[in-house]
């Protein structure tokens, strides 16, 4: 699996004087096989980073590389084999009129991988869904099942890096537990590198080895998991976020 390196990433929306700089200068490294978290309040630019890494936004400056290779220089085909993304809302990210089979078979066909049925069956098994679900449409699935399909779709091209944008925040706690377990198991089995955005520090603590705290587009601090309870954060905003999350969790 491959590491991810983000160097001096900058991004603004709009042009000229009306331009809004959402990411002034962001740098961080994610080791191969690591789960790296991005936390921060809404509007802090954490999802924007994922969109830049995935080249869904392309007007950024700086350098993003996967396994030493800049994502900008990759062809679309190559990029899709390197990284895949799972979005927040499984109700919005699956095409309502395409069956699971269509959603999963399309990438295989485009990339001319062959063994279509085997690959689809494998992906479904990997995410814990029965193979018979291939013929279902999104409206015939629950929220958790939809998110599993979205993950299966991300797995089907055997990427190295998975970009997870709040993969469980639209789900109930009980379903969130299932999806987090699934993501954890997949990482252990296949050694994916995860870049995970979340606003929930408990989820980040459960999943990630290290995480970056973001505010107004700036990475204020990169912390290890033990910094949450250890109180070793130094930046005022990072401390505030950790304190608020702890206070929220442990009854007052």
């Amino acid at each position: 699996m491959k590491p991810v390196k983000v160097e001096n990433l900058s991004m603004s929306f709009g042009v000229g004087e009306a331009a809004v700089k959402v990411l002034p200068d962001v740098s961080f490294d994610v080791a191969a096989g690591e789960c790296f978290g991005l936390v921060g309040e809404s509007g802090s630019g954490k999802s924007t980073i994922l969109l830049c890494v995935a080249m869904l936004l392309s007007t950024w400056g700086g350098r993003i590389s996967i396994g030493g290779q800049p994502v900008r220089d990759m062809s679309v085909m190559e990029r899709c084999r390197n990284l895949q993304m799972v979005f927040q809302d499984p109700y919005g990210s699956l095409h309502p009129r395409q069956s699971v089979r269509t959603a999963l078979s399309e990438p295989i066909r485009i990339h001319k991988l062959g063994d279509m049925d085997d690959r689809m069956a494998q992906a479904m098994t990997d995410v814990g869904l029965p193979v018979s679900f291939l013929d279902r449409f999104p409206h015939q699935l629950s929220g958790g099942q939809r998110q599993r399909v979205a993950i299966a779709r991300a797995l089907i091209l055997e990427p190295h890096v998975l970009l997870l944008d709040e993969p469980t925040s639209a789900l109930d706690v009980s379903v969130q537990a299932e999806i987090l377990n699934l993501l954890q198991r997949l990482r252990e089995e296949k050694g994916f590198t995860y870049l995970m955005v979340s606003h929930d520090l408990a989820v980040v603590d459960h999943m990630c080895d290290r995480f970056a705290v973001m505010q107004h587009g700036v990475v204020t601090e990169v912390l290890g998991r033990d910094a949450i309870l250890g109180g070793t954060a130094t930046h005022p905003y990072a401390r505030q976020l950790i304190e608020a999350s702890l206070a929220y969790e442990n009854a007052m």
Partner: peptide
């Protein structure tokens, strides 16, 4: 429901599912 909630400082074992 209580058990399925990830907690800060938890043991990172797979969460019990409902």
């Amino acid at each position: 429901l209580l058990a399925a909630q990830p907690r800060i400082g938890g043991n990172r074992q797979p969460l019990p599912v409902l």
